[in-house]
């Protein structure tokens, strides 16, 4: 990883010195070893801040939305999931691909920072990284290093199936417990590359969709609605799980939606390309009309 870190610093320096980029988005060391954070580098000297370690899990692509109307030339380092997020934003017409320079970085998988925070001796990979099927950039202007072998070849739905096996009452109890922990900080929404609306319905307080109350019912409504909103568009980066301060298993619901959609409309992995229409965003005369 050190080798890659040197390469990243070198590339960032070149980009900034040549004027090809005025800002480079990457990662820097945090206060604690597992708290590696996103960083915006604007000068060649600052490039020494850039790091590439086992805690670079943050998906950087969402930062690009802030530069859509800026004159700055932005370059961004991107793992497999960052590039899927990049495609997500392009497909949702929030950014234009040609405006940005994407430097792909094949990803060996990032460690679970929540486990690290607990002081676990041998920190495992984050769940999303363990299940990652696309660690190599799916879109990039240039890619550093050598491609890595995906850590999984097929989606692992064992966790979803465990919930599916529960009775309705057990499911209700399970989710009630999970969402009574939720503090509605909206961190999962803010970090999500699929949650990129300019006006989120959860911020439209007068519309009547959702009250500001924090209780299990309102929280579940929030959770279910968000799962529907990202259904078919989730790129499985696991950022929501990573940032949740209450450890609500948010990806579990996203995975359930993906499993169902794949069954209904055929296998679709979001963010691999930008041409095809998303499963819930297309009208197809061949869609089944079993209800008619």
């Amino acid at each position: 990883m050190l080798e890659m870190q040197q390469e990243m610093r070198k590339v960032a320096k070149e980009l900034l010195e040549s004027g090809e980029a005025t800002v480079v988005i990457g990662w820097e060391k945090g206060a604690l070893p597992y708290q590696t954070s996103p960083v915006l580098i604007r000068s060649a000297e600052e490039t020494e801040k850039l790091v590439w370690d086992e805690y670079c899990q943050q998906n950087l692509s969402n930062y690009l939305i802030d530069f859509v109307y800026s004159d700055e030339k932005v370059a961004i380092f991107a793992k497999g999931c960052d590039t899927r997020a990049f495609n997500r934003l392009v497909q949702d017409k929030r950014i234009k691909a040609e405006q940005f320079t994407v430097i792909g970085v094949p990803c060996p998988g990032m460690k679970d920072r929540k486990q690290a925070a607990k002081g676990v001796a041998d920190v495992p990979l984050a769940k999303a990284c363990q299940e990652c099927r696309y660690p190599n950039p799916v879109y990039a202007n240039r890619t550093l290093g050598q491609p890595v072998t995906p850590r999984a070849t097929a989606p692992d739905y064992s966790d979803v199936e465990a919930i599916e096996a529960m009775s309705a009452d057990e499911k209700a109890k399970f989710w009630q417990e999970q969402y009574s922990k939720c503090i509605r900080c909206y961190a999962c929404r803010n970090v999500c590359p699929a949650c990129n609306c300019t006006n989120c319905i959860f911020d439209q307080s007068k519309s009547g969709w959702q009250s500001k109350d924090i209780n299990a019912s309102e929280n579940q409504f929030y959770g279910i609605t968000r799962a529907f909103h990202v259904a078919g568009r989730c790129i499985e980066c696991g950022q929501c799980d990573m940032v949740c301060p209450s450890d609500v298993p948010i990806m579990l619901m996203n995975k359930k939606a993906k499993k169902d959609l794949d069954q209904l409309f055929g296998q679709y992995d979001a963010g691999l390309e930008t041409e095809s229409l998303i499963p819930l965003g297309r009208y197809d005369v061949n869609d089944p009309e079993e209800f008619m």
Binding site: D92, K93, Q204, L280, R282, Y283
Partner: peptide, 27 residues
Amino acid sequence: ALCAGCGHCVGVCPYKAISLETIEERK
């Protein structure tokens, strides 16, 4: 004012009644 312009409604419309248009805004 609420529309983010993602265009997913364009794809889902069976009657091709929706299109994207460019508007100007102060931001």
